Simulated assay, not measured.
Amino acid sequence: MPDSPPAWPLGFRSTLVKAVIYLLVIGAIAQGAYLEALYLPEVRFTELGFTELTQSLVLGLSCLLLIYVRHVLKVWPTITLLLFAFIAASLVREQDFLLDRQVADGAWQVIVALIVIPSISWVIYQRRRFLEEFSHFSNSFSFGLFTAGVLTTYIFSRLYGRQDFWRAVMQDNYVRDFKDIAEELIELLGYSLILFAMIELLLLARRVHQARKQASA
């Protein structure tokens, strides 16, 4: 059964609708951070603030979409497993403060290992299937968005959030909070791109699922 979707052209209307939705989501996130800074002085940019909670929400939604693609649509099981392990590990990492306080110091690292090690081991075992699935996924818009999200969150935000950089910019007016806020907001932007990538993956997986049904009919 085919694992690649039919070569249907992307309609202008559907592309425009998605672009508007993504634009609104990004705008809502920026506005939420703005309102957090104005009206939530006690929790702003903390573990209980809008930005941190939205990061967890975005990652959680991404995980749910991957579960649906893998277990309901049954499309690209090794790709979706690897993506799920990566995003779920990021979600757990975002809860490090809570886990360290409520469970044990370093608890998040143990949970991440329990997620990542079995998943990577299974993908390695199924490496031929993974490479076949990746040949389809790597040519998709979803892969491009996912790559952009990863680069934004895990590369650019880390480099942009370097203390030396902010000390050079602010000099005697350096305040660590500004650096942390900038880094957290960029991370949220990257996580949002990853969520958009998972939405695109869902739409692509539905096409694969429909193609399989048509082939088996």
Rank of each mutant, 00 (worst) to 15 (best):
S14Y: 03
L203S: 05
S192F: 03
R127L: 01
V175Y: 00
Q210S: 10
S119W: 05
R167L: 12
G60T: 12
K179C: 08
L53A: 14
R167M: 10
I181H: 06
Q126P: 04
G11N: 05
G11Q: 06
F134K: 00
R127A: 07
A168K: 10
R127C: 07
W122K: 11
F165G: 03
V72E: 09
I29N: 04
L201K: 15
F12S: 12
L10F: 07
P5S: 02
R206L: 00
A113W: 14
S216Q: 15
R13F: 12
I115P: 07
L151T: 10
E133Y: 11
R206A: 01
L99Q: 02
S192R: 00
A33Y: 01
H136F: 15
D100W: 04
R162S: 13
S192P: 04
D177R: 09
K213A: 01
A168N: 06
F84H: 08
M198D: 03
V20A: 11
P41S: 11
S138P: 00
K213V: 00
D96L: 10
I67V: 15
P118A: 03
L99F: 07
V72M: 08
L61I: 11
A88N: 07
H136K: 13
V110H: 10
D180K: 12
L201D: 03
S90H: 02
S142F: 00
L91F: 14
Q55W: 14
A7H: 12
F130G: 00
L16S: 09
T51R: 12
V175W: 04
Q171E: 01
E36K: 00
A37T: 11
R207E: 13
K74R: 14
L48N: 13
L195F: 09
S14A: 12
Q55N: 00
L35D: 02
G49V: 06
T147H: 06
I87R: 06
L83R: 08
V208L: 05
P2A: 04
E132Y: 06
A197I: 03
G144E: 01
E42W: 00
R212E: 07
N139C: 08
